[in-house]
Amino acid sequence: MAAEGSNSIDALGQFQLHSALGAVGGSVNFTQSNLMMVIASVGVLAFLYLGMKPRAMVPGRLQAAAELGYETIMSMCLETIGGHEGKKFFPFVFTLFFFILFGNLLGVFPLFFTFTSHVMVTLALSLTVFILVTVVGIKEHGLHWFTYFVPQGIPKALAPLMVTIEVISYLSRIISLSVRLFANMMAGHVMLEVFGSFIVMLGGLGLLGYFPAALSLGVNTLLIGFELLVATLQAYVFAILTCIYLHDAVHLH
């Protein structure tokens, strides 16, 4: 995250993709973003496997954490989506939440890449959710599902306008879901980069720059803590919105 030049701040360079895993990775266009996805996935699996390995009746710390993660997402699914369907979609929501959470949190470490800061990745995730929600809705209700776009108790004359608005708002879920996550992660990392560059640039000015450089370091320290909050919060928001959309698909309003 160091500044590349002494006079300009390259805040976006950190998002540049390049191929990872040497020549083999390069030949299949395997990027460092994908490497981080693998690391995050291995992290999630290790979290569960190592955590649940003792199978203790009274769990230790790691097992308690793994169980807490399981039960949090399970109760989120059961409460938001509802009983039977909630259980059915639980593995998907769990995967989604922990994939994004680990991606976000790993991204806060220096030298690590944040794959959730790429709008194409978050767009793919939100499209997955969108398609799943639509397919579930149509499978569950057949053609009746299209009444979802017709609000109840509106005058006939207003119907075309309202349906148009409803369809647009339904489609805009793809954008809002993906851009919310992507923009949050990108903004945080740009801020870290900018203040990190301040430290280097101001520190290079000599005695006069030491104080503002130290101040920037303090800001970055705060930002790191703040990023941890945002990383968790955004993963949670993505998961809970997915649950809400699935609830709508299953129950139609």
């Binding site: 266009n29 395997f30 994908n34 194409m120 793919a124």
Partner: peptide, 12 residues
């Protein structure tokens, strides 16, 4: 930019 999405889908 797009290949990472394909790999991402596989990994996911």
């Amino acid at each position: 930019t797009l290949s990472q999405v394909v790999w991402g889908a596989i990994i996911f």
